[in-house]
């Protein structure tokens, strides 16, 4: 067992990534992922860009959840919509149209 896995992480949410961008498709086996519940747009972007996912370096992504852009943490989104951590959230990712700005939190 991996030693780094023994640190107790925070709460997690299961997400399913989808996209309509033909050049940014994930293989089927990588579309579902457990992510920290306090993750936001920037953190999700970093995950998607990572070597084990799209391996795309640093494309800024935006995420649509039920037709709305994600502007909070996933946990806050779930809470404000009366959903629990049991929910499997579908996140549609698109290339961000917003000019990149420095974000300290992810």
């Amino acid at each position: 067992m991996d030693e780094s896995m023994t640190d107790a992480p925070g709460a997690q949410v299961k997400v399913t990534f989808t996209t309509t961008e033909a050049d940014l498709q994930l293989p089927e086996t990588k579309r579902q992922l457990l992510v920290p519940a306090d993750i936001r747009r920037y953190g999700l972007s970093r995950v998607l860009n990572s070597e084990s996912m799209l391996d795309t370096g640093s494309i800024p992504f935006d995420f649509l959840v039920n037709g709305h852009f994600l502007r909070t943490s996933l946990e806050d989104y779930l809470t404000s919509n009366g959903l629990s951590l049991e929910t499997n959230l579908t996140l549609q990712y698109v290339r961000s149209l917003i000019p990149p700005v420095y974000e300290a939190s992810f």
């Binding site: 067992m1 991996d2 780094s4 896995m5 023994t6 992480p9 997690q12 299961k14 399913t16 293989p27 089927e28 086996t29 990588k30 579309r31 579902q32 992922l33 457990l34 992510v35 920290p36 953190g43 970093r46 995950v47 990572s50 084990s52 996912m53 992810f106």
Partner: peptide, 26 residues
Amino acid sequence: GHSVLELKEARFGQDGVPVIHRYLDS
């Protein structure tokens, strides 16, 4: 692609770099 056998988890290290593990490993 929805099988728990395929399921991974993402965690952020101290450096903010995401690391992907297989869920069933733990």
